[in-house]
Design a protein around this nucleic acid. Structure first.
Length: 232
DNA sequence: AGCACA
């Protein structure tokens, strides 16, 4: 019986401490995404914080649903324990800032997002803890240097498949990016899979133009977006 | 068992 009032962030403990941080975050992210839009997962391996994590949702109702459904869920052989977090996650304040901006002025959110502030800083909580700067470079290269097999798969399609998106990406943010190229129709997010999306264009050629420019685009300093033609 | 990130 929890004494903490319901809020958007869940505190999860009794996690298997042998699991690597990134693997754990990813597992939690997918597990909890089933119940709503997860915008951040914070897991620290410090003495004090190991075996615990914070799952940040957009809505309290989503957090509540997840807590009910996943209470005691055996993750990496240990039943997880879930409660509401005691304090508000920083990420939520960042998100609120973006939302206000979004409401007030479309032009400014664009420059905010892709210049110095909100988009690049705020959205990057996931990766900002990286110790090595080179990760930046290698991420970018990974997305840009295609292997031979990937090259073969490239059958032009007016629908683009976007991968490696930050988990709190919005349809609006992606639209700002893709609408710059002619023929843009819409962005489609995928429920339960916040790191991928689709961008639709009028025709293959237009889609290809966007692909060429936006594949490998550093949507945050450490998340190079991968863009390929959808396989449909 | 342990409630953080800014």
């Amino acid at each position: 019986m929890s004494s903490i009032p319901p809020n958007k962030t869940l505190y999860v403990n009794n996690l298997n401490e042998k699991i690597q941080k990134e693997e754990l975050r990813k597992a939690l992210y997918y597990l909890f995404s089933q119940y709503g839009r997860v915008v951040d997962v914070v897991a620290l391996k410090t003495i004090k914080m190991r075996g615990q994590a914070f799952i940040v949702y957009r809505e309290i109702t989503e957090a509540t649903k997840a807590m009910r459904s996943l209470q005691g869920f055996p993750l990496f052989d240990k039943p997880i324990k879930i409660d509401y977090a005691k304090t508000r996650s920083n990420k939520l304040n960042v998100l609120d800032g973006e939302y206000k901006l979004d409401e007030s002025n479309t032009q400014s959110i664009y420059s905010q997002m892709f210049s110095e502030s909100k988009f690049s800083q705020g959205v990057t909580t996931i990766s900002k803890k990286r110790e090595h700067e080179e990760d930046d470079q290698s991420n970018k290269k990974m997305a840009l240097d295609k292997t031979d097999e990937e090259e073969e798969n490239v059958i032009p399609n007016r629908i683009l498949f976007l991968q490696n998106l930050p988990m709190d990406i919005t349809e609006k943010m992606l639209s700002y990016l893709f609408v710059q190229y002619p023929g843009f129709k819409e962005i489609r997010l995928v429920p339960g899979k916040p790191d991928i999306a689709f961008a639709e264009y009028e025709n293959e050629l237009q889609a290809q133009t966007a692909l060429k420019v936006l594949d490998g685009f550093n949507i945050t300093p450490t998340n190079a977006m991968k863009v390929e033609f959808a396989k449909i």
